[in-house]
Simulated scan of single mutants.
Amino acid sequence: MSELPIPNFDQLLRMTDHRGTFEHACLDEPRPEHGYCTDDMARVLVVAAREPGASGEVNRLAGVAVRFLNDAQALGGACRNRMDAAGKWLDEPSLDDAWGRCIWGLGTAVAHSEVVWVRKSALVQFERAAQGRSKWPRAMAYAALGAVEVLTVHPDHRAARKLVTDYAVSIAKPNGDPDWPWPEPRLSYANAVLAEAIIGVGVALEAPKLWQQGLDLLAWLLDIETFNGHLSPTPVAGRGPGDPQPAFDQQPIEVAALADACARAAAVDAAAQWNDGVRNALAWFTGANDSGQLMWDPATGGGYDGLQADGINLNQGAESTLAMISTMQHGRRISLLQR
């Protein structure tokens, strides 16, 4: 990585209209016919809220995202996920991953947005969504991270603390298997969020054994997702004990999740491996990957949709572009800290 790439919101702005950010693109052109989703709008809110000194256009993205998430929520806090281009919801409210990511986005906005009305609106919505509990591990992990963010600025917030405490009780004890300590028989998707949530909740509850459990899991994950000195993330089909490396199709969102977790770990533990993990995630986008391919388009600011055995998916959809921006935000933070 000769020159540190900086977050570029151009493609994300191109993909966004007054209603939301279109989910899919054909190359760098949005595909309105596929509509929008809450998963992506939560991610939009995360990257827009934590962009320091954000421009008016980036702050507008945060406003669009907050309004979208408000519309996605039912009165009891459950969330819809998919909306068509005309603004019609296509599914019913649930407590699936979209609910968890919604809480994550809202909590991040409460803690980091520089726009007062975004912070206030996000807190109201957070309180509504935080009533729920999901049976899905990743949904609860994202929700817990949102609650952790709220507690950084509102340490006595009752709903956030209750959500964090409930999540802590649900965390499985270490299984004692040094070869496969992961709490699931296979790695699947957004794996690093499980370790990150344990770290974040451990810090929020001032429970060093808990955050150390998260650090241990993340260290193992970082090791298993490193191959020949570069990041080799879990592919779409997952990864189990003994699976060969490298494996494809690799998705940018996996890389971004690992960067998020390593950034959180670095705030707790001074070990060099965490900042190195962020750097390796950023390097994955700039060509240090299993195919030696650039995974973003510097001309548009878009992230490519997937790394495959025979090349790359050149479409620059919302999820991939957001993953790239998020990872670059972490890379920039590390660079600034070391000046």
Rank of each mutant, 00 (worst) to 15 (best):
F285I: 04
L187N: 05
V44S: 01
A263M: 11
E23H: 13
A195E: 02
G242E: 06
N59M: 15
E319V: 01
V255L: 02
E3N: 13
D179R: 15
S291H: 13
D276W: 02
A190S: 13
A265I: 06
A109D: 06
L294C: 07
T300N: 04
V255W: 01
F227D: 00
L151S: 10
A299S: 13
L217R: 07
A192R: 08
P183V: 02
R67D: 14
G56R: 14
P208Q: 06
A192Y: 00
P137L: 00
G53C: 03
S232H: 11
A144H: 08
N289V: 01
I6V: 15
A42T: 06
A190C: 15
N81Y: 01
S94Q: 12
G63S: 12
A237P: 00
L217Q: 11
I325R: 00
L336D: 11
G311A: 01
N275A: 09
A323S: 15
R119A: 09
E33S: 14
E114V: 13
G132P: 07
Q250G: 07
V115R: 12
G100D: 05
D39N: 11
Y36P: 01
A257R: 10
R82L: 13
W104I: 03
T327Q: 02
D179G: 14
M140D: 15
Q212W: 13
F9P: 03
M1I: 15
K88W: 01
D276S: 11
A190E: 12
F68T: 06
A86V: 10
A42P: 00
L163W: 14
G311P: 02
A49R: 03
F68D: 10
A85K: 01
W136E: 09
R158S: 12
E254H: 04
G292R: 05
L163M: 13
A74T: 09
V201W: 02
R19N: 09
E225M: 06
D269K: 08
L307F: 01
I199F: 04
D216E: 13
M295W: 05
L221M: 10
L90G: 05
F126C: 10
W89M: 04
R133T: 15
D260M: 06
Y304L: 00
R14C: 10
A263T: 13
R161G: 07
V66S: 14
T226A: 05
F227V: 12
N280Y: 00
R67I: 05
H330S: 09
D297N: 11
E127D: 12
A85H: 11
P298A: 01
P155Y: 11
S94T: 15
H157R: 11
L69Y: 08
A48G: 10
E225H: 06
P178Y: 01
